[in-house]
């Protein structure tokens, strides 16, 4: 490791992997603190807790042996949806706030690479989303226990898969955040999420012998481009199979995680490349 020693004997460690990790962790810590203070975050968290609480009321309307199942279904829908909403909205604002408030003007001239800054912001938001997911899962578990249900292995593995999906959606949001303004980046991220969840439908339509993709050749090219350019987020949507009693084996979680993390890395690299080209006037 190389240390610079200043005129007054101060040692500055700016080179090497350890120094890089220290810089990234400083940005992660600050991002976590900043995002954790956002009213938006607490608004979404509060809404999710209320919805989970509402499922307790709603389950009273269900048949006796279906009460736990209703709470289970409700949680499987609410927890991922709120977490993805948080990732889209806060990811879209992540870089914009730094630029708009000019806080990054005092940070980027320091010995930190722009890529390290993006990595720190991304990981900081991911950390916050994991905290949100765990908090909501605990509330969900409590509600589920009150109705005699339990957190099964497949549900836990489903939540683990959802963490990977959140990392991927956050990377997409940061990619668009580095490209354009927050409203547009939020819309684009939401668009990719929606299309990503139904990519398998597009694949099926492309394989069909009739339909739009056969009748309009130009649309066929668009369909093929979407399948290639947008990650298949249905890989992480395991709520229905779990509710139908299917298992989610660890081997599936591992392969889906690899798939999701590769896509997340690609979007993060894209975000860094875009961010490196930006002028901060």
């Amino acid at each position: 490791m190389t240390a610079i020693v200043t005129k007054s004997g101060l040692e500055l460690h700016t080179s090497g992997a350890f120094a890089m990790l220290r810089r990234i962790s400083a940005v992660v810590g600050n991002t976590l603190r900043e995002a954790g203070r956002a009213k938006l975050f607490y608004g979404l968290l509060g809404a999710a807790v209320m919805l989970l609480g509402f499922s307790l009321v709603l389950s009273d309307l269900a048949l006796v042996d279906q009460k736990a199942r209703l709470v289970q279904s409700f949680g499987m829908a609410v927890v991922p949806l709120v977490c993805v909403g948080t990732a889209v909205l806060m990811g879209a604002l992540l870089l914009h706030k730094e630029i708009d408030k000019k806080t990054l003007y005092a940070i980027l001239p320091k010995p930190i690479a722009r890529g390290e800054f993006i990595a720190g912001k991304l990981l900081g938001l991911c950390a916050l989303l994991v905290i949100e997911l765990v908090a909501l899962a605990l509330v969900w578990w409590a509600v589920l226990s009150m109705r005699g249900g339990q957190m099964t292995g497949p549900i836990v593995r489903g939540l683990a898969l959802h963490v990977i999906e959140l990392v991927l959606v956050t990377s997409i949001a940061v990619f668009f955040s580095a490209l354009t303004r927050p409203v547009l980046s939020g819309l684009l991220t939401a668009g990719v999420f929606v299309v990503g969840r139904v990519t398998y439908v597009i694949t099926d339509l492309l394989a069909a012998r009739k339909g739009l993709f056969v009748e309009v050749p130009a649309m066929r090219a668009v369909g093929k481009a979407l399948v290639v350019a947008i990650p298949d987020l249905s890989t992480f949507a395991v709520a229905d199979p779990i509710l139908q009693g299917w298992d989610v084996p660890w081997s599936y979680v591992a392969s889906a995680s690899m798939y999701g993390l590769c896509w997340a890395l690609a979007f993060a690299v894209g975000a860094v490349l875009l961010f490196q080209r930006r002028d901060f006037t």
């Binding site: 040692e11 700016t14 003007y105």
Partner: peptide
């Protein structure tokens, strides 16, 4: 920077702490 802005939830000590970490101090 001209008219410097920092994270308004931080104290001056925390700003210095953050910046110091970026310098590897």
């Amino acid at each position: 920077p001209e008219s410097p802005y920092f994270y308004d939830y931080l104290t001056p000590i925390e700003v210095m702490e953050y910046v110091g970490k970026l310098y590897g101090m």
